[in-house]
């Protein structure tokens, strides 16, 4: 520890000691993984090792002609910024939450003036270790869910 700049004249007030003790204890406890009490956090920043095989989820919209278009996340309002993350947890949502999420996404895309009849959610597998130029090798996709008219239909295992 560095030297104190001057000889203390008085003791700091008791409330200051208590305040610092509580704050630092909470900061250290959360930092050691006790909990995520934002802004007190566990500091999990890219802490999990990434693997070359990436399994993700992708939502596409389906128009009246049956044409598929990727969910235009970049054109949707910022409020939808977390949508891909939520689609990625679709499996873990309750049926009611799944239906509600689908409805919100469909409504969001319709607000852009697009014709949307249904939403399809695909499971996407990509191997980052196989490179084709500057990109990963083409991914494999499998349909998992179809949302239409307020219902969610599971497809495949």
């Amino acid at each position: 520890m560095e030297q104190a700049p001057a000889v203390p004249r008085n003791h700091p007030p008791a409330w200051a000691r208590a305040f610092v003790a509580v704050f630092l204890t909470a900061f250290v406890a959360c930092g050691l993984g006790a909990g995520e009490l934002w802004p007190l956090t566990r500091w999990h920043l890219f802490s999990a090792v990434r693997q070359p095989i990436q399994v993700g989820w992708r939502a596409v919209t389906v128009d009246a002609a049956g044409r598929e278009t990727p969910l235009p996340v970049g054109q949707l309002p910022l409020a939808y910024r977390g949508a891909p993350l939520l689609v990625g947890r679709f499996d873990k949502l309750t049926p009611a939450e799944q239906a509600s999420l689908c409805d919100s996404l469909i409504a969001g895309v319709r607000s852009l003036g697009r014709n949307v009849l249904a939403l399809r959610i695909y499971r996407v597998t990509k191997d980052e270790s196989i490179r084709v130029g500057a990109r990963a090798a083409p991914e494999t996709v499998a349909l998992r869910y179809t949302c239409a008219h307020g219902t969610v239909q599971a497809a495949g295992p």
């Binding site: 009490l37 934002w38 409504a107």
Partner: peptide, 18 residues
């Protein structure tokens, strides 16, 4: 960003902490 996410659809809301 704050005004952009204000009034977000409820189904997209994923609250954390407080």
């Amino acid at each position: 960003v704050y005004l952009s996410i204000a009034g977000q659809p409820h189904s997209l809301y994923r609250p954390l902490s407080f």
